[in-house]
Design a protein around this nucleic acid. Structure first.
Lengths: 146, 146
DNA sequence: TATTGTTATACTCTATAACTATA
DNA sequence: TATAGTTATAGAGTATAACAATA
C-alpha cells in the first residue's frame, strides 16, 4: 500500500484532492471529442437515474449554480436530448426529462467515452475493484456533507 | 452499503465518474474565492511534493497539455509563487520551483480551502476513513493507466 | 418576500495550431 | 528530426449580477 492507513487528516485531504483531480482530467482527456461533454453526460446520467428533474435540483446535485446547469440543459435541449415539461403544480418550475434520442445518446456515446476507464479498471484485481467500489459511497457522502 | 460490491464494470464506471465529478465540483465551489485556483493549487502541491519540475513533467502528471500547464505556471510566476531555473544540462528545459512565498501560500491558503473537506472527512468513522485512504492509490493507478 | 428560471457578461481551464530554440 | 517551451486563439464550464414570473 503506497498510502499508509493512518495518514494525518491534512495529508488525506491533499492526496484525495490530487487523486480526484488527476482522475477527472484523465477522464476528460480520454473523452471522445465528438461525443457528449463532461457536464452534459453527467447531467444526462442524473436524469436517467432520477427521472424528470428541475434545473435547481440538478444544480444542487452537481454542486453548480442554477445558471450553469441552465446553460448545460439549454445545450442538451438544442441537441434534442432532453425536453422540458411544465411542473404540474408550480408554474415557476420546469421539469427536464430525457428524450428517446437522449436515452440512446447516453448509451452509445457514453460507452465510447468510458472505454478507457473500463480498460483501466481491468488493471485492478478483484479485491482492489471491490475496495474501490466500496469507497464510492464514501466519496459521495463527502460531496454531500454540509 | 449503498453500492453492492459486485457491481458490473459499466456501473462502476458510471458511479465512479459521477462521484468523482461531484466531489471535484463541491471542492471547487467550497474554494476560498481570493485564494488559489484549483489548477494553481494542485500544481503547487505537486511542486512541493516533487521538487523542481519541468512544464512537460507537470503536464503529464496532471493529464493536461504542456501549453495548459504553461499558462498555469506563468500565472503562478506572475504572482511570485514559483520561480524558473535553467536546466543544468538541457538548454531547452526549464525547471520550476516554489518560492518562499509559494510555500507559505500553499500552506496558508490551502488550509483555508481545505477546511470544508477536513470537516467532511470528520463525518466518516475511523474504518471508513481507512477504507477511503486505501482507495486513493487505486484512483491514482486508474489515472496513470496506459 | 422568497424561489425558479433566464439573460448578459466575464473569468478560468484547457485545447489546437503555429512558432522558436535547443538537442 | 525530435523535443521543450511560447504565443495566439477558441471553446467549454462556471460564476456573478440583474431581471421576470410565480408562489
Amino acid at each position: 500500500m503506497s498510502t499508509p492507513p493512518d495518514l494525518p487528516p491534512e495529508a488525506i485531504v491533499t492526496e484525495l484532492t490530487m487523486a480526484v483531480g488527476q482522475l477527472l482530467r484523465r477522464l476528460r482527456s480520454e473523452t471522445n471529442p465528438d461525443g457528449l461533454s463532461w457536464s452534459q453526460s453527467t447531467a444526462l446520467a442524473r436524469l436517467e437515474r432520477g427521472g424528470p428533474t428541475t434545473t435547481a435540483d440538478l444544480a444542487r446535485a452537481e454542486a453548480v449554480k442554477p445558471q450553469s446547469m441552465g446553460a448545460t440543459l439549454a445545450e442538451l435541449e438544442r441537441e434534442g436530448l432532453v425536453m422540458r415539461h411544465p411542473h404540474p403544480t408550480d408554474g415557476r418550475q420546469v421539469l427536464f426529462a430525457l428524450t428517446g434520442a437522449g436515452v440512446e445518446a447516453r448509451r452509445k456515446r457514453s460507452a465510447a467515452k468510458q472505454k478507457w476507464l473500463l480498460a483501466a479498471l481491468g488493471g485492478l484485481d478483484a479485491d482492489e475493484q471491490r475496495l474501490l467500489v466500496s469507497a464510492i459511497p464514501l466519496i459521495r457522502r463527502l460531496s454531500e456533507a454540509d
